[in-house]
Structures are given as C-alpha cells and as structure tokens.
Nucleic acid binder design. Structure first.
Lengths: 235, 235
DNA sequence: CCAAAAGTGTTGCCGTTACACCCATGT
DNA sequence: ACATGGGTGTAACGGCAACACTTTTGG
C-alpha cells in the first residue's frame, strides 16, 4: 500500500478557497486573475494551492488564506471535493474546496495594493436552493470568465450558504465586530436574493441569543441612528 | 504546475465508503476486517481504495462499491475529505469519504459468503446532532476496534444523516422497493435514536408526496396487515 | 413640526404534536 | 368476541409573517 505512493502516477491534490463577503447589498467573491498557462490564461479563478506531503488540509487552506488573500483568520468550512478527470486541462488535479467568510472591511484592507485580486459580484441565475453554476461580474456588470469548474463550485457555495443561513451563525461571520440590525438584514437578503420582513428578521435574530446590544449608536449620517450590536462568542 | 505532479512527493488519495443500513431497529455499517499491516491489523475499517490517475472520484467510489461490497448501485453522497497528517500510520493518505444507503435485504445477499465483511451495530454516545466519534459493536454488544480515524468519520456520517432526515429523501433510500409505513418509521427512529409519534410521522411522509399506496398488503404474520407503499421516482 | 428610518405590539395563519378514538384481521 | 396493531379525527400549542403603530433623530 505504501508502495502505491511512488510506484504509480498519482493525482495531485489542491485546495481552492472561495472567500465570500457582502458589500453594497451584493454577494461577492475574491478571484484571482490567471496569466500562467495558455489554457487558463486571461480567466479568473479561486485562489488555491497544492497540498504538499507535509501539510494537512487545514495547513494548506490556512496557507492559501495567508499567502493569496493576505488574511490570517476567517471563518472556514470545507465545502467538498471535486475530482472529474478533465476539470483541469493541464493535468490531473483533485481539488478540496473550502469557503471562507469575512467582513468587507477586513477584506478590503487585506486586498490593498494586490492588483491581481478582484472582489467580483456574484450573479445567481436560480432561485432558492435549486442549484447550478453561477457567473461573476465586475462592478459594471461585465461578466468575468471563470477558469476550470469554478462556476460549478461557486454554485455549490451559494447553495450551502442559503441552506445554512437560518439555522447556523454563518450570517454573522460576514459582519464586522459591531453592526446594526439593518446591516445584518442586508447580508441575509444578499445571500438569499430576496427581501425579508423587518420585524420578523429582528426578532428571529435576537431570540437566538447570539448577539447583544452594546448601548452605543452608529455615527448618524441622517435621521435616527440605529443601535450597534455585537456577537456573543460562546467559547 | 504539471511538474509538481512528479517533482515533489505527493500525498496519496483514497476513497472510503460508509455503507449504511437499518435492520432490527438499529443503524448498521459495513466494515471490513483488516489483516494487512501490523499497525492496523486486527482492526475493522470502512472499505476503501486508492484513486488512480485515470479514475474520477465517482469512478473510484463505484469501484469500491462493486469490488468490496459487491453492489452495483446505491444512493451515494460525498461526506467530506479527511487529511490530517497522522491519520494513517503507514503513510500520507488523504481520504475522500462517501456514504451509501441501501436496504438490508439487498445488502445481505451481496455480503453472502464474504467472511471478512461484517454488518456492525452503530453505537452513538450523543444525542441529537451534537456530534463526535462513535463506536461499533457486533450483534452481542462486543465493541469492535476501528482503524484510522474511522470513528470520527462515522460520527460525521450519523450527524449528516440525522440532519438531512426530515428535509430530504434519504430515509426512503434505506427501504426496499415496497414497504409499510411502520418500516419507514422504524428507520427514522433508528437514525434519530428516539421514538416518533405515529400520526405525525404518517402524515408528514404522506403529505410530502414522495410515496404512493400500492393497494396491496403485507403478508400478514399476525393481526391486521399493513398496506404496502412504494416510492414515486421523480425523473 | 416634518420627513425618514429605528424599533415594538398585535393579530392571524399554518404546520406540528398529542391524545383519543375507530377499524381490520387472525385466533 | 377479543387482543393487537393499523389507520384517522380533533383540538391545543407554538413559531412565523404581515400589518400597523410609536419613537427618535436631523433639518
């Protein structure tokens, strides 16, 4: 069995990272402009990297997060593993995909100066949790070509986010340390792709006991300022 | 990039299969007695196999299902990928885990004569969807030692099954083509590890429109025979 | 005092649960 | 006739959503 490690040609193992955020009421993903091989050059791809023999999968994702996205922490979750024979035209690569969630505030400072990175808009062509590939666009609505099977992978990410949104805390992972309830609602609406009722949303979030009012108010730009809330971290 | 396939030592990629079933009101899993390496010999493990360079992940699972479990079809779903450095004492192996569901009727005929296979009882030491490793036992309540991290993996399988049970059709995958509503309830109770109310269960299942009454009755052993139902397969 | 957005109280709907009952069958 | 498990009706409960309302701020 140990022999099969060296005797036969092995598939390569990579991790790919879908780093998601919400800004301006839109769901976003961090993509990287590829210029390396002719077959993928000019397209956009999720940041990733190979899994070396002395790295655990967790090590490998942490490394991608740090080296490619310039972040040292984020909510991370394994999505699934993609292993079709022809998914990478340059060779046989099995990719273990994770997604990460952060606030755009943190993400924008991390991206500062890195010109090959872009925070693309996500365009979901289906409703609810139906599923299927999605596409991405720049701020002006121009579609950006995705490399490999990353359109399918991102479809799975959106499906997972929509499915877990109301029985988990993933919605809160996209918020900065302090936020208003309207911020939280905007994030939920961006992920689900539909409007929610204000009173229902407020109560559901508060009844779950995961957030706490700070007593402070947002810096009012106009009209009544909303109260700032923060997460209660159960250790 | 293609060079990294050969220049550096690569982790090996395997698929492992958790073939689950319910019989006698207990959740079961198919395990294989390992005698190969000293470090794992004597223990029980999930059937698995390496992913060769010309096999997709789907090919690899199908092969394990056929060669190791002697089945040519079953409900299959990817669970996740496990890649800790020390999970296999014999070398660096990343394992993509799938679970499969079948009726015990089908499974028992497939296992016929294969003496290294055992259909072990699953012992869940936690309630609900809390999670954590589980253990397995033979019919007499004697614990069987699991190899590798398969105790943790099976914990994830049970958690996934419990989580998906009432918004998906996985419960029906464990039933033979024709079944009574009591059979279905028994399967749900075995997975959840708790009793359910009969009227509530009946109605929920029927209202979902996934099963149809056949008009026929079970072969009555005693008292009133129950009606036989079958799945409605949406193509 | 007005406009606009924050935040709350009330009501009604719907799905689920619990309990009690009736039905069908073999002995 | 009766014991036993199959199958159904009904009423109470609780979560969720819609609506209307009050409150607070800047101008």
């Amino acid at each position: 069995m140990q022999r099969s490690l060296s005797e036969f040609p092995q598939p390569a193992v990579a991790v790919d990272l879908a780093l998601m955020s919400v800004s301006g009421a839109r769901l976003k993903v961090l993509v990287l402009h590829r210029t390396d091989a002719e077959s993928v050059g000019g397209r956009w791809a999720l940041p990733g990297g190979f899994v070396h023999i002395d790295m655990s999968l967790d090590d490998a994702v942490a490394r991608v997060l740090r080296d490619k996205a310039n972040l040292d922490s984020a909510y991370l979750e394994q999505l699934g593993t993609f292993g079709a024979l022809d998914r990478d035209p340059r060779g046989r690569v099995i990719s273990v995909v994770y997604f990460a969630l952060t606030s755009t505030a943190k993400l924008r400072t991390a991206m500062d100066g890195k010109s090959s990175l872009k925070l693309a808009d996500i365009i979901v062509p289906w409703e609810g949790e139906q599923g299927g590939p999605i596409s991405i666009a720049n701020g002006q609505g121009i579609t950006l070509d995705l490399a490999f099977d990353h359109d399918v992978i991102l479809g799975h990410v959106v499906k997972r986010l929509r499915g877990k949104l109301d029985y988990s805390t993933i919605g809160l992972e996209l918020l900065p340390p302090r936020f208003t309830l309207r911020d939280a609602q905007e994030i939920h609406e961006a992920i689900l792709g539909r409007k929610l009722g204000k009173p229902a949303f407020r109560r559901k979030l508060l009844d779950r006991g995961l957030i706490r009012a700070t007593g402070e108010r947002e810096a009012a730009s106009a009209f009544r300022p909303a109260e700032l809330y923060e997460r209660i971290d159960r250790h």
